[in-house]
Amino acid sequence: MALTCELDPLIDDELTDGILALWTDVSNAGGAVGFVPPVTGEDIRPDLDRSLAAVRAGERRLLVGRDEERQVVATAFLAYNSHRLMTHWIWLYTVMVHPGRQGKGYGRSLLAAVEEAARGFHGIEAIRLTCRGGTGVDLFYATCGYKEVGRIPAAIRVAPGDDRDDIVMLLTL
């Protein structure tokens, strides 16, 4: 099955519901996207609303991946830097692939679409992201060309006694 990616899709109820369902499923499967399971859509809705408001305000861009049935199965948010000395790179946030679709190349397709989109943004020279240590996702990003450029030990408290590193990664375009 192929993943079709779209930058800056129309944000309507269908898309919003699809992203909310994806974010909930990814979170409940243990994905490191800002929550610890169990969560409901109501838990995630405020974060989604803030992210979509930033897209509408032009502060972020949204990349959505859909499967052959046009279901939302992957997303990534790209955020511009507002600091005048850092406008040459963008942040990559909330990268998600549905747990049932992982291992099929969707993550690589999504990151390739992110890279292609970033190359089309005027003046952007790099993509920066952070990820939660202990999940192995940093190894996946490394296979996609991202380099670890920093690590803050025990910065993320998943649960009492379960602190994870916050890993900073960069892809130079």
Rank of each mutant, 00 (worst) to 15 (best):
V26L: 13
V95W: 02
V73H: 06
A112E: 14
V114K: 03
P37T: 12
S27A: 12
L22S: 09
N81E: 14
F35C: 13
R101I: 03
A32F: 09
A74W: 12
I124W: 02
H98Q: 00
V26A: 14
A112V: 09
D47Q: 15
N28T: 06
G134K: 05
W89F: 04
G18N: 09
H88Y: 01
V114M: 04
L52C: 10
L129M: 08
H98N: 00
M86T: 07
G120P: 09
G133I: 08
G120D: 10
S109K: 13
E125A: 01
V26S: 13
I19S: 05
P46T: 13
D17T: 11
V137E: 12
W89H: 08
G103R: 03
A57C: 05
L52M: 11
T130P: 00
V39D: 04
W23D: 07
R128L: 02
E14D: 07
A117W: 01
T130I: 03
G31I: 04
Y106I: 08
D43Q: 10
L85D: 06
D25P: 00
V55T: 07
G100L: 10
C131D: 01
T75L: 15
P38H: 03
Y93A: 14
R56S: 12
R66E: 08
F121Y: 08
T135D: 09
G105L: 03
R84F: 09
L92V: 14
A74V: 10
E115I: 01
A113E: 00
D49Y: 11
R132G: 02
G65M: 09
I124Q: 02
